[in-house]
Amino acid sequence: MRPLRYAINVSLDGCCHHEAGLPPDEESMAYWTAELRRADALLYGRVTYEMMEPAWRRPVAGDWPDWMSEWEIPFAETIDAMPKYVVSSTLGAVDGNAELVRGDLAQEVRRLKQEPGAGLALGGVTLPLALADLGLIDEYTFVVHPVVAGHGPTLLSGLRERLRLDPVDRREFRSGAVALRYRPVPAPSDSPT
């Protein structure tokens, strides 16, 4: 079974809006590229898919845009090549190497996890909340930025039950951001007997 891994940037006060943290730099983009390469497919909701699509779609001309730094290209090439699963009941279609996921969310995500592969990379805000509530996320990575945003969507806001996590990795960046990786602690009823 391939693991479902949720990773997101977050401010010190829990804001996970994509513009709330520090601007990307060479070190952070290399980190996020490596994170993507741990998976063989992406799982996004509609909002994240529509926001990220310009970052992964290679222009028809074949060259990346002039505004993109050389150190951003490996991230763009990686995300462009990855198959994408988009959970949406409102989108009529997706293009490129994306596929719409409809129907029972828990059943569909379990089906995707049962396919062979290295893993599914999960991003966004709303879809991860639903999947955390369903207990389907196998790993969480929070890149905590030394910023207090003061507003915006907050990390897993509205979670139905407390989520207990075991730390498994930590990495500090020159910018002061810290990547923290966790795995859920199984509930007592989930523990092997």
Rank of each mutant, 00 (worst) to 15 (best):
P83F: 12
L180H: 08
T154M: 05
D95Q: 09
A93V: 09
L136R: 00
E72T: 02
L136T: 03
A34L: 00
R57A: 13
G14E: 12
D104G: 03
L127V: 06
R46D: 02
V86C: 04
P54M: 07
P167E: 12
R111H: 10
V168H: 07
P192Q: 06
P24Q: 05
R58N: 14
P128F: 04
D80F: 05
D95E: 09
G152A: 09
C16Q: 14
S189I: 10
R37E: 15
P23D: 10
G62V: 12
S175F: 06
V94P: 07
A81T: 09
Y85A: 10
T154W: 03
S189F: 12
P116V: 12
D66S: 12
A61P: 02
P3W: 01
S191N: 06
R110G: 06
T33N: 02
S175A: 11
E139D: 07
R181N: 10
V185C: 03
L155K: 07
D169K: 00
T33F: 00
D95I: 06
A39K: 00
D80L: 06
L122I: 04
A93H: 14
L105S: 03
R183C: 07
D63K: 12
R181Y: 05
V101F: 01
P167D: 07
F75L: 03
V185K: 02
L120H: 00
Y140L: 03
R5G: 03
A34D: 07
S28M: 15
P83L: 08
D40C: 09
V147F: 02
A98M: 07
A61Q: 14
R38L: 13
A179N: 13
R162W: 04
R181L: 06
G158Y: 04
D190E: 15
E139C: 03
E70F: 04
D95N: 13
L43A: 08
P65F: 11
D63V: 13
E19T: 15
L156H: 03
P186M: 04
G14F: 04
K113Y: 08
E99Q: 14
L155I: 14
S157L: 11
E99L: 06
G62C: 12
F75Q: 00
D138V: 01
A177Y: 12
F173M: 11
E77H: 09
L165G: 00
E172Y: 11
L127C: 06
E99H: 10
T78Y: 04
D104A: 05
L155Q: 05
R160M: 05
D66C: 00
D13M: 05
V94C: 09
I8R: 00
V144F: 06
T48S: 13
V168F: 02
G176K: 06
A55G: 13
D95Y: 09
G21T: 13
P186T: 04
A7C: 09
F173R: 11
L100P: 03
E53L: 15
A132Y: 01
A130S: 12
T78D: 08
V185H: 01
I8L: 10
G176I: 10
E77A: 15
E19V: 07
A41N: 08
Y31P: 01
